[in-house]
Each structure stands twice: as structure tokens, then as C-alpha cells.
Amino acid sequence: MSEENSPNLSRRQFISGAAAVVASLTVAPGVFLLKPAGAASNADGKRWGLLIDTSKCADGCTACVTACHEENGVHSLGRPQTDAQWIRKVHLTDRATGHQQSLPVMCQHCEHPPCVDVCPTKASFVRPDGIVLVDKHTCIGCRYCMMACPYKARSFIHEPLTDQKPHAPRGKGTVESCTLCVHKVDRGDGTTACVEACNKDGHRAMTFGDLNDPDSEIARRLKEQGSTAIRADLRLNPAVRYQGI
């Protein structure tokens, strides 16, 4: 696949906007201009995050896991050791007191993600709105990010796949993880598949929102009630926060 830019088409001519009416004008054969009409990204100035209240997370309930994998077309291939898991329920027992709880763990969408630091090709990256993604166009499948992630959030695709979801491309030889349902976020749904499923089941343990908007529910609750991050000692400032652990 050619990665070179066409000499006919400079990048500057070509920036276009989301959901905008795009007027195109052919200047000469192969040379044309595209004008986005007032494009604004859904990503500007925001930082999307999740707040998970473990006291409301029911032991044995896997609604969020099922919904996520359904939404993104993550199927089991019958080999649990190599099957991808974007989100999983973790069961915890306090060694000192025997206190038990369970909670979902997925990509924590760090502000300073180790996966992005170690990626040799910049395939791991943070979007301006804080979502950490893998660009599968440049991922070479070295798995260094999986070595570096403190949350075991990433999966490597160990075999050829078919029938991916159109909004969630996945393919053999690349690494993937929770996208914070970036297709839903960009569509303006204002929620993720896991949060929807948790609310639908009536647990309401998960909240999605903009951490940078002081009026959002998530920001208000974080401010008023406090929260913790997993491996807070690493100071990665994850966008997924927990209450009750």
C-alpha cells in the first residue's frame, strides 16, 4: 500500500471537517479543493472519562462486558489465552480483611500513557479528547505497548478475522483495546456501550462524561465525592476513575 502523498494533492488543500457540507471544486484534472463549511470536532477541549462506583457493581454481572464485545464485534475464537478482551470483570479479595468486591477494568485512557511512550511508530496515541487508541494503519505488532501497560488493557490479535463491525476495524497482527466507544462519542451519543448496559440493568455503576466540563455529572461527582485511580502511584492520571476501592 502506498503511503506517499500524491503530488497533486497537498495536505493543506485537503483538511475537511466532520459532519460538514463539503464543497469540492475541481481545479484541473486531479487537482481539486475541498472546503469544509464550519467544521468543529467533537473532540475539542474535552476529556472523556468514566467513573465507576464499585459499590454498585454487582458480583457476577457481566452486562458491560457483553455489551462492549457485542458493540465492537469482539468474538471468542475458542482460545481463551489468545482471545481479545477489551473489558473484563475483576474480582478482588482484600488479603488482610477478606473484603470482596468486583469491578470492570478496561483501558484507563491515561493522560500520560506508557503504551504511547513506548510505541516505536506512534501507532499508540492519545486523541485531543483524551481517548487512547491504536492506529492500526501504523501498528507493526511488536507488542511493546502490551509489555508497558500497567492495566493489562491490551490484546493482540492472534489470528485472521472476518466480519468486523464497520465502525470497529480489527485485524490480525495488530494490538487493540477499549476505544471508549469512540464511534459513539464522535456520533454524539454521549455514552458508551458498557455504560448503557449498566444503566439498562439498573445498576448505574458507571458514568460517562467530560472531565473538563465542571457542570457535567461526572466532574461534579468526582469533585464532591472523590475517587481513586488504579495504580495511582504511577501518576498516569487515568480518565477512568473508581469509587469504593
Binding site: E3, T121, C139, I140, G141, C142, R143, Y144, I157, V175
Partner: peptide, 19 residues
């Protein structure tokens, strides 16, 4: 995972990566 993309490794550098 994608040895065919060796050229990507040669053209896209993240200078914070030890790799």
C-alpha cells in the same frame, strides 16, 4: 505481527520509544 510493515517502522519514529 505485521512484518510487511517494516517500512512503517523505518518511516514513523516516536523518539520517546526505546524501540
Amino acid at each position: 505481527g505485521r512484518p510487511d510493515r517494516l517500512v512503517v517502522a523505518m518511516t514513523h519514529y516516536n523518539f520517546k520509544s526505546i524501540f
